[in-house]
Amino acid sequence: MSAVPADLTRHHGPDKDPADDGPLLSVDGLVVEYPGKRRKVPFRALKGVSLTIGAGETLGLVGESGSGKTTLGRAILGLAPVTHGTITFRGRGISHLGKRERRALGEDIQVVFQDPYTSLNPALTIDDILTEPLLVTGVSGRDARARVRELLHQVRLPADAGARLPREFSGGQRQRIAIARALSRSPRLIVCDEPVSALDLSNQARVLDLLVEIQERTSVAYLFVTHDLSVVRHISHRVAVMYHGEIVETGTAASVTGQPQHPYTQKLLLAAPVPHPARQAERRAARRELTARESASMKAGSA
């Protein structure tokens, strides 16, 4: 679209910037603690987590509730306090930025949250929601609106959606709006925190396909946080498994979701029901066998 200034539609191919030689994002020995109330011991949500994400790559982060996967995403976004360790983005440490520098990082790191109902301000129109990140940078109102039309087209919403309020859209449509907002400044990394777990099955598949398509076109990287192994296999180049604030296993999507090595990953995989009665019966039997083995070895260990 000709009305859109070039800097709003930048694409991050493998370009020549020296900052792009290393990984896009690397997290090293990250510890996040939340202070305990009234002299209690602080709660350690992350216990020394390390990972990397390359440009244009999707790293799937799987774990159950309380595993710390959401906290990791929030720490990268600057929404959770970093106690120890470093987060490096394009060669620059970002774990202890000042407010102003952190705000400037909004250009490169964006977010899509789980709940499409609370992640959009119900009082603002879609136009207001989508122009918000653009106007911060001093883009003119007209350029911003042109960009919004383009974004709506990208996430396949009707062009006249802009004048409406979030409540007029279904969950899947709202999540597209949230994706459009994340894309508005063409970031290099989007933290996707369970973006499809609140959606119906059919919408889930469509939103995932949309995310893949956007990635192939713009080379954006995703940190894709989810509890669902089948989702993570579908979208991730690599997968990291979190358990109790630590990463217990990393590898390619095929290896982690196909031949998991860590006992917890194995348990997670066997617990996810397959939509096929005969295969699910097999999986159930395998899971029971694993549980029996586990408890037997625990008994042996305690004896």
Partner: peptide, 24 residues
């Protein structure tokens, strides 16, 4: 049933960036 992702192909690793062997 087609929307379930159970039997979808796992995505292949992004082989070209050279950032695979990070501090994992």
């Amino acid at each position: 049933l087609d929307s379930t992702l159970e039997d979808s192909e796992p995505r292949r690793p992004l082989g070209t960036t050279g950032t695979e062997q990070g501090a994992d």
